[in-house]
Design a protein around this nucleic acid. Sequence first.
DNA 1: GAGTGGTCTAGACCACCCG
DNA 2: GGGTGGTCTAGACCACTCG
Lengths: 261, 261
Amino acid sequence: MNPVTPNQTTSDATGVAAASGQPSPTFSPLYQQIKGLITQSLQSGEWKPGEMIPSEVELANRFKVSQGTVRKAIDELAAENLVMRRQGKGTFVSTHHEARAHFRFLRLMPDEGVPHYPESTFIEVKRLRAPAEVARLLDLKSGDAVVYIKRVQNFDGVPTIVEELWLPGLIFKGLTAERLNEYKGPMYGLFESEFGTRMIRAQEKIRAVCAEAGDAALLRVAAGTPLLCAERVSFTYGDKPVELRRGLYLTERHHYQNDLI
Amino acid sequence: MNPVTPNQTTSDATGVAAASGQPSPTFSPLYQQIKGLITQSLQSGEWKPGEMIPSEVELANRFKVSQGTVRKAIDELAAENLVMRRQGKGTFVSTHHEARAHFRFLRLMPDEGVPHYPESTFIEVKRLRAPAEVARLLDLKSGDAVVYIKRVQNFDGVPTIVEELWLPGLIFKGLTAERLNEYKGPMYGLFESEFGTRMIRAQEKIRAVCAEAGDAALLRVAAGTPLLCAERVSFTYGDKPVELRRGLYLTERHHYQNDLI
DNA sequence: GAGTGGTCTAGACCACCCG
DNA sequence: GGGTGGTCTAGACCACTCG
């Protein structure tokens, strides 16, 4: 394999670049291109979450590059949590069906005791037309179908999170309260397994708000109680937004944990 | 230079491993040891913030390893923001005197408009004996001297942050309101230049609280207004805690930005 | 043009896992 | 023992910066 823009690389001749004879306006290193190809295979489902991807030597042969180049590509994918390396075993497609992954997207920790995953009670699940603001954030057209979900999450039986979600209707066709109730574990696991949509990264904007009457009742606190409000947009492959979420967190016995590095 | 297990950090070729014949109980790759040595030089001030460190080939010669090994060590240091690589120029010790670095530790962003750095007004600067809780978090003994600082930060003249800090008195001897007022730019820049203490990472715990009367007055809002409360412990080299900070953020026109990756 | 970091290769060997 | 990822080396060439 040859790089896309004029590049040395002694190995073979058939590169895509040779045809284009352009100078290098946009230089992209070989390992980045390999990374792109591997990402495509992840996205297309050639290797499914939890499965092992081909070994480094195998990929090196397939792409006609050295193992070191494949290695650097996979290094970056591992750093982005798209794959996980396990020495002596292989490289595996990341999945949300793992304790490891659960707390990457749940940052609310108990002030004391060990973190554990909350239980969900679904308040409402329905389809509706996307309001302008939701459409904008999900990159849809205003009025497009979206799935709306409202749930409460309990830690040790104590209601602590009230959450609303908006999901693109096209992708999450057939998502019902029943399927949500049946499913055990984090919703992202369900989304990954049943709807072929893997959340890769997310952006959150956090504010402090006063609990309104309805939410206060769900959390069994007085109206006006201060709550953390986290508005999240989650992205799948290709930086495509596929989830909007607004969580209200009761932070009397929990806190939002963040590392600045 | 040879690895520690099977061998020691000496630069000769013999190595202790051959003698011991033991399997490796604690194996540390060579590049990690190089990384440690470079970190020591950073910590000792052999290369100061903003300065260029020796080139990769130079370090490779010094440590008697290949350039690739030095490279991998520096890669990790760069990933941890201890150094910055600039192609064609060199590798430089990170410093807080840079626009780049400012927003690594200030996550409060305006809902609209471009981020910019707030102005500080210092309310109180004094020395006191560490309360038990402060001492615990700063790894001091209860009653040890600490510097206490209270300030308000304004965005465009609007008071938005009330912050309290506790710093180990031993390190921050001579930190006065005057010096804080004289200094322009982020406090971490002052700490780095004047007190030889560089913050390299921090942990934050975030909650929602109601503004108490005093803080509400400083922020010019009603008592009871919901505020974000961020409690931060900052660390310097060797994971040594050197700052405790409690910030109250008014989130009516700002939000705490966080990326989940 | 000289010096720096960045990419790519090829080959060797090590640590780890499993049958 | 054979496969996998992990480390280390040596050498070549490229892209970038600056004098």
